[in-house]
Design a protein around this nucleic acid. Structure first.
Lengths: 345, 345
DNA sequence: CTGAAAGCGCTTACAG
DNA sequence: CTGAAAGCGCTTACAG
């Protein structure tokens, strides 16, 4: 073990040079063994491996990155871990990254664009080869700028598709998801299909995309759009309850409800039961996101599923492509969704 | 911008030397400005800052770490992101780390001890100052070994408390949580208190700790332990349903159920309703973990809460202490839990 | 099959 | 207030 370093918090750590000295060869030879480059007698090789084991040598990957200008590492950045959408995405990213020999590091940025920039700068500084960002609305210009200055970026579910050097975007097709959900309710013979949605104040532009799909499917089916059947509330369980109270108090209440997300759908389910309405007989119900609770409620909830694992894997593939062909510009990619029909409709 | 490097996947990146050349000063001076060390005329300083902005210079943190032997970075390692327990812990870690000027990187290891070791080695190689591990059972010896070889480690909710150089553990007091839950049911006047628990086959030793608390609280209250009131099933919603079917079929069914976790409690709730039993009037119900759904079900679920955010913050404090005083050995720390009483009991 | 030299981007003493 | 030198741990050409 090497020199004293009293100011350091870390214990002195074994270096390649320590191993070389211990065996009595040059660092170059140890390096060759560590990197499996061959060109080394079996005898020296075994002695070196034994020394590595004995001393507990671990290569310093930062030193290596400094030379190679690559770390085989990618970053993943999202708002908050509490969001199940994000965690499943992350699991997909993790698996796909591993398959191509990359390690994923992961950081969250709860507080908006400034913090996001800070995290991305930190990741870049620590040498990640590229970053997948589950982006914060309002940070688009910033992200384009960072990509241009050398940090390859894949944006997942950003508001607008972005184009530029060193950047790619992929978005779940929320519009199509809403179309499918409403079309399914039409096929079930429903005529008065309500939409229980988020308050539109949010900066996340997902509600408008879903609502556009809702209107499109109604139009396709020749059903007139009726503003009274669109209820706005918080996108939570309580918000879902609130929407149902208002919708069921209408002179002509709905015979189906398409909810902005599953939490609202579950709130709607609870409130419908309380009001004595049967699901799906009196009111059919479709949620969005297909979170785990969908199969834990009675009746089990029909929902629009985004395969978040697959979305994560796709994002890794895009990033890899970006890293291999940095100079090609590429369009925004759309990610398909599917409708999972269960008992609530 | 510097030299051509055709083999690199990364775009050529601006270095400190580039900035120095652009302004016409030595790298040393730029370094001083970047690190706010003073000792530089305001005029040069401003010119340097302008150049940094114009060229888009970002310090290479790996090079810096190589010199300092510290990165102000900590790692967090867990099984899978899908586990809400872990994500809330992570949010606490993230916030606490940030408060002391550290960046948290995060990695998952779904597949057991071998993979965990791989991830930890990678984190160490990338220069993290220490790691918080939400550990995998069976990896204890390995973790002790890694700590001894220079990677400071804090273990959260490990099976056994571990002691050794460079290592600390913290565990939620599951035993006390179970005692409180059952004591609460006793105070509510319940006499036949069942325990719906996990199959004990699991390597995670949490079920026995909860069961010991259950027995302890019964003994405290002078209630005889009755093996027939302990039902085992999968620790899922479906498992909870299964336990209730068996328990309510007993000659003398229970008047209260303490569940291994909230998922089982929610399954129990559904099945009790299906059987026509009122909660809490006929059967009182207490869960464990206090996951989000507890307040979304009707009646809202009483549960044992582990403040996972706080647990995460505590883990960071322990790690920081370990980094500042590497040579002190320390005991295992116990983390208190609380009972959140709601409508189900 | 093995080694001496140079350098990745940066900072830490040391001089002026 | 500013700079030249040395070195963190490693790898990449180049020699032998």
């Amino acid at each position: 073990v090497n020199r004293e370093r009293p100011t350091s918090v870390r214990r002195a750590v074994v270096t390649l040079a320590d191993v070389a000295a211990h065996v009595g060869v040059s660092p170059r030879t140890v390096s060759r063994v560590v990197n499996d480059q061959g060109g080394c007698s079996d005898e020296t090789r075994l002695r070196i491996l034994a020394a590595i084991d004995e001393l507990g040598y671990r290569p310093n990957l930062m030193a290596r990155s400094l030379l190679n200008n690559r770390s085989d590492t990618i970053g993943l950045v999202g708002r908050e871990l509490a969001d199940p959408f994000f965690t499943e995405l992350a699991d997909g990213v993790q698996r796909a990254a591993r398959r191509i020999g990359r390690t994923m590091f992961f950081a969250t940025t709860d507080e908006g664009p400034a913090r996001q920039r800070e995290i991305l700068t930190s990741l870049q500084g620590h040498g990640v080869d590229g970053v997948i960002v589950f982006s914060i609305p309002g940070s688009e210009a910033d992200l384009l700028h960072m990509a241009e200055f050398g940090l390859p970026l894949v944006l997942v579910n950003t508001n607008q598709p972005l184009e530029g050097p060193n950047i790619a975007t992929i978005q779940a097709d929320l519009h199509d998801g809403a179309v499918r959900a409403v079309q399914h309710l039409v096929e079930r013979g429903r005529k008065r299909i309500a939409f229980a949605t988020d308050r539109m104040t949010t900066v996340h532009q997902t509600a408008p995309r879903r609502q556009a799909g809702y209107r499109k499917a109604l139009a396709n089916a020749g059903i007139r759009y009726d503003e009274r059947l669109v209820a706005h509330a918080a996108n939570t369980v309580e918000g879902g309850r609130e929407c149902v109270r208002r919708l069921m108090a209408l002179p002509k209440p709905p015979d189906a409800i398409f909810a902005y997300n599953d939490l609202m759908a579950i709130g709607a389910l609870q409130e419908l039961r309380r009001l004595g309405a049967e699901v799906p007989d009196d009111v059919a119900l479709v949620g969005f996101d297909d979170i785990a609770i969908c199969t834990a409620v009675v009746p089990r909830l029909t929902s629009v599923r985004i395969d978040r694992n697959l979305l994560g894997e796709r994002a890794v593939a895009l990033l890899q492509d970006l890293l291999e062909h940095p100079d090609e510009s590429r369009g925004a990619e759309s990610f398909p969704v599917e409708l999972i029909v269960r008992e609530s409709s």
